[in-house]
């Protein structure tokens, strides 16, 4: 097992190197640079001033030198400073990621609490009214884009209820209630979408598993329905559900950008988006590298979870 993890981590290195080259080049291909973005509001600036600022930020050097300089920093855990506001990139990413993670955790909790029971009942009572309601729930969640649900929700709250959640983010340990109000709506919206995807997957996986011989054997032994479903079937039925959940976790880090924008939450997605707008090379590079690493680690974790759930799966 240890060897397997090590091999997977080693294989991730070339992927991350290519990701780093790709994002380093792409962000420099965006027309304009951070100096132009910073000075766009300050009126006339002489070409000498522009050149001086570029040289201070080090973005006038040969791109290869810039890449090696930045890359060697990343290896040492130093992601550099933001070109836009001079803040250290890594600590900012950690802070911003906490916000996105908080939403992600709430969303996943919502999804697990709704999707797994719903998917299981839907499969066990196939073609009953519960099944139809569950499938309608899933199709609706899959069809409606996040931003659309968010817009409708805000419209409903402001027009009908005459109340809007407080926009912006509050530290959970200082203002727990405001923090909860700020993140609960985006979390529920994402959670609904996740529940839809996962409930559908749970239903389909359970339908397959319930027809397996070992489930029939368990029933033939005279076990109660609940025991057969929960102890025997669900365990195997969960494998594809975990894959789906895992892929959603990695999506969440960057994919929340739209909801973060709508609800004014300073999460990871918005940090990246603002950095693209500001041509803040170091921040874009840093966030993309961190998100790619999280994706790789989450995938590894999913593969290891399979072995925990299904003892037949062994990695060597």
């Amino acid at each position: 097992m240890g060897q397997y993890i090590l091999r997977r981590l080693l294989l991730a290195i070339p992927t991350l190197v290519v990701v780093s080259i790709l994002v380093f080049s792409l962000v420099r291909l965006v027309p304009g640079d951070v100096v132009m973005a910073r000075l766009s509001e300050s009126g006339y600036v002489t070409p000498e001033q522009l050149a001086q600022m570029r040289s201070e930020l080090g973005i006038d050097r040969n791109p290869v030198v810039q890449y090696l300089d930045w890359g060697s920093g990343v290896i040492r855990g130093d992601f550099g400073k933001s070109l836009w506001d001079d803040n250290e990139v890594l600590p900012t990413i950690v802070g911003r990621m906490g916000i996105s993670m908080e939403i992600a955790v709430f969303a996943i909790l919502t999804a697990v609490c709704i999707a797994i029971p719903l998917g299981v009942i839907s499969a066990v009572r196939q073609n009953s009214w519960v099944d139809y309601v569950a499938r309608l729930f899933a199709v609706t969640g899959l069809s409606l884009p996040d931003f659309w649900i968010a817009t409708m929700l805000l419209l409903f709250l402001s027009v009908k209820v005459h109340w809007l959640p407080e926009f912006g983010w509050y530290r959970p340990w200082e203002h727990p209630w405001q923090n909860f109000l700020a993140i609960i709506f985006p979390a529920l919206i994402v959670g609904y979408r996740f529940s839809a995807v996962s409930a559908r997957m749970t239903r389909s996986a359970m339908l397959e598993v319930m027809r397996e011989d070992y489930v029939r054997t368990a029933r033939a032994k005279g076990l109660r329905d609940r025991t057969v479903v929960v102890k025997h079937a669900l365990r195997n039925g969960l494998i594809p559900v975990i894959t789906i959940m895992g892929s959603q976790v990695s999506f969440l880090l960057g994919g929340l950008v739209v909801l973060e924008q709508i609800f004014s939450l300073p999460g990871m997605g918005r940090y990246t988006y603002d950095a693209v707008i500001h041509r803040d090379y170091t921040v874009v590079q840093g966030t993309v590298m961190v998100m790619a690493s999280v994706y790789i680690l989450v995938n590894l974790a999913i593969d290891l979870t399979y072995a925990l759930i299904d003892p037949r799966i062994r990695y060597s």
Partner: peptide, 20 residues
């Protein structure tokens, strides 16, 4: 190559690519 594309955060990369 597929791994590289899969590991890139989709939405921010789409925004970056469109800007580029």
């Amino acid at each position: 190559v597929g791994d590289v594309f899969a590991s890139l955060p989709g939405l921010p990369m789409l925004i970056l690519l469109n800007a580029t």
